[in-house]
């Protein structure tokens, strides 16, 4: 049984964007604060701290979750992925990020890392997601700048483009 005593800092380890990381945390430290304050990974944002706004959304073992509703200790041994882990192989933007830029899907950018992590998971888990499903998933994020239309356009374009690419790849095989 893993036990951590209150009021003391304990060494925690997991992987962050594929690299092993470690740091010290009291049991009560939230994962969102551990990333920013202990690991210096400030690419994820913190908004409401009670699971409503979605700004801190990241991926744990492939699932898009709220970092403010997890204790740092709960990520022990997990694969944590943040927006800093996204991007194309050449170091540029990936297709989703590029579509966000093209469609003005961000203004202040505070909500953007969380939204990118949710959509990245959705592209993997549900490549056939339609506009209604994308809206449903985006309802877990508050964006006060854009009115969401640019975000929807960017997301729908990438889902469609990846489906086309998938279809062409299959035709190429046969």
């Amino acid at each position: 049984m893993r036990t951590l005593e209150a009021g003391r800092r304990h060494l925690l380890r997991f992987t962050l964007n594929g690299r092993p990381v470690e740091g010290w945390a009291e049991p009560r430290l939230l994962l969102s604060d551990f990333l920013r304050q202990e690991l210096g990974a400030t690419d994820g944002h913190v908004g409401c701290e009670h699971g409503v706004c979605g700004a801190c959304t990241l991926r744990i073992d492939g699932r898009a979750v709220r970092a403010c509703l997890m204790l740092a200790v709960q990520a022990e041994g997990c694969a944590v992925e943040t927006v800093a882990g996204l991007g194309a192989a050449d170091g540029g933007l990936d297709d989703l990020q590029a579509a966000f830029r093209r469609h003005h899907a961000l203004q202040c950018g505070y909500c953007t890392p969380g939204i990118l992590m949710s959509l990245t998971q959705l592209l993997v888990d549900e490549p056939d997601a339609d506009g209604a499903r994308i809206r449903d998933v985006l309802s877990g994020h508050l964006c006060r700048c854009t009115g969401y239309q640019g975000i929807l356009r960017a997301a729908e374009e990438v889902f469609a483009a990846r489906r086309r690419a998938g279809g062409e790849a299959k035709e190429g095989e046969s």
Binding site: M1, E26, D33
Partner: peptide, 10 residues
Amino acid sequence: MKPAPFDYAR
């Protein structure tokens, strides 16, 4: 908006 201290057991 931070939790009060507690012991953690898994």
